[in-house]
Amino acid sequence: MLEAATRSVAIREADEPVGRPAHIVIRDLDMAFGDFVVMRGLSFTISRGDVFVIMGGSGCGKSTLMRTMVGLLEPARGEVLYDGASFTAAPPERREEMLRKMGVLFQQGALWSSLTLAENIALPLQQYTRLGPAAIAEVVDLKLSLVGLRGFGDYYPAAISGGMRKRAGLARAMALDPEILFFDEPSAGLDPISSKLLDDLILELRTSLGATIVLVTHELPSIFAIATNGVFLDTESRTMVATGSPQQMLASCPNPNVQTFLRRGAPARGAGASSAPGSEES
């Protein structure tokens, strides 16, 4: 009980945006596939310790934005900065260094299927640390325990459930103790209870590891439960139409698309409904 109370206080303290330094800056970002522009003119800042949610309807470019932020796609224009240093303009070696401070959880876990869970987590440690096999086994054991999979190290990804794969993917993403964790649709394909447990785990990790968390999701319960800040990408105008915490957006964003989204299709309130899409809010 006491522990739970302390934890919730800690979360609330961390929620305070005042004075927290910028961790990730997106500047004038355009994303395109060939001639098709997915999103244009994205500019926002993610503070250290934020649980930042990238939201928007299906197919609006949320995952594309995340993939651009971790270097899997190149932007058509603009840049992504981590701690003030440009990631998009960095040479390959520098980029690799920056990537080591990030962990990514893919939608289906993306565990390497020919390796056991333990080998999956051990691989980044073998590549980037000087730890011996015994020490690596210790770290792997710890990471698996953190996501509730102690004892599953020798299982292959095909032998465990979707929810477990996702948690194992999270353990792998945390292998190098990253400063930033990216999550691509963490709740997709999970039942409500597993989804809630994963949300709790994300909050717990953010508090205990002090990591900045970037989530791509359209799950409203998760968005309202854990996000401290976010950006809304609009499919129609192909740009961002709102930034701020989900609660702020719901309370004061005049954009009807944002209101409809956050109210799960329920009609927006009178004032907001008449406003044109594309109006900026913060």
Partner: peptide
Amino acid sequence: NMKVTEEIDALRTFGI
């Protein structure tokens, strides 16, 4: 198949 299941992307995000 590793491409389809994003395993190759996972390698890239680790700089491998």
